[in-house]
């Protein structure tokens, strides 16, 4: 997994609340058996018309935001299904960080498995960054995972909270499975005890 430490980039504003996983990556693109290549279909139904032409008003189609690496989003981003295709598409497009007031649980977890940092900020701070993002390509937002800060283009610094284990894995690009397999002995012991106490499982 790609490491995440610092990021400086253009932020695209998406103020809509409850942006769901069907919007992020419509189900027609779930038929792949690969993880890559989904970026062109990120937000497909908002981004293209039925003929496949870009809808110019959509934020990621505007010249200022085509290279965005951060999303500033409305409340409850990523609600809906468990599809990891959503973070795969986001990462494949080149977005490494999403900022909102809240995220749906499964989506939030999925981000960390794909080198994406989801940042939760209070409403007022998210709103300030949304305004900043609306300035377009001249406004670069900086994210520092180590320091747990987001800095707006005019130098305003916002602190965010993050689980220490998730931070550690993201900063070092660690593979969860490898880490867990190091604890195989604990799993073995538990499994034995569990099987004795609850043999029907």
């Amino acid at each position: 997994m790609e490491k995440f430490d610092k990021l400086s980039g253009i932020a695209a504003p998406m103020p809509l609340v409850n942006i769901d996983t069907d919007m992020i990556i419509p189900k027609v693109f779930l038929k792949t058996i690969k993880r890559s290549g989904l970026g062109v279909n990120l937000f497909d139904e908002m981004r293209y018309d039925r003929q496949g032409n870009e809808i110019p008003e959509f934020v990621l189609n505007q010249p200022a935001y085509r290279e965005a690496s951060i999303l500033v989003a409305g409340d409850n981003f990523g609600c809906g299904s468990s599809r990891e295709h959503a973070p795969w598409a986001i990462a494949d497009f080149g977005i490494r960080c999403v900022i909102s007031t809240s995220f749906a649980d499964i989506f939030y977890n999925n981000c960390f498995k794909n080198g994406i940092l989801p940042i939760v900020l209070p409403e007022a701070e998210r709103d300030a960054l949304m305004e900043d993002a609306e300035k377009g390509a001249n406004a670069r937002i900086e994210v520092d995972l180590e320091a747990q800060t987001v800095t707006s283009s005019d130098g305003e610094v916002y602190h965010f909270e993050i689980d220490s284990f998730k931070k550690h894995c993201l900063m070092n690009g660690l593979d969860d499975i490898g880490l867990t397999l190091e604890k195989a002995a604990a799993i073995d012991t538990f499994e034995e005890k569990h099987a004795t106490e609850r043999p029907w499982v």
């Binding site: 993880r35 299904s81 468990s82 599809r83 990891e84 499964i106 977890n109 498995k113 794909n114 969860d176």
Partner: peptide, 8 residues
């Protein structure tokens, strides 16, 4: 019982 992503 809960839903998980593909990595999970």
């Amino acid at each position: 019982a809960h839903g998980i992503g593909t990595s999970e």
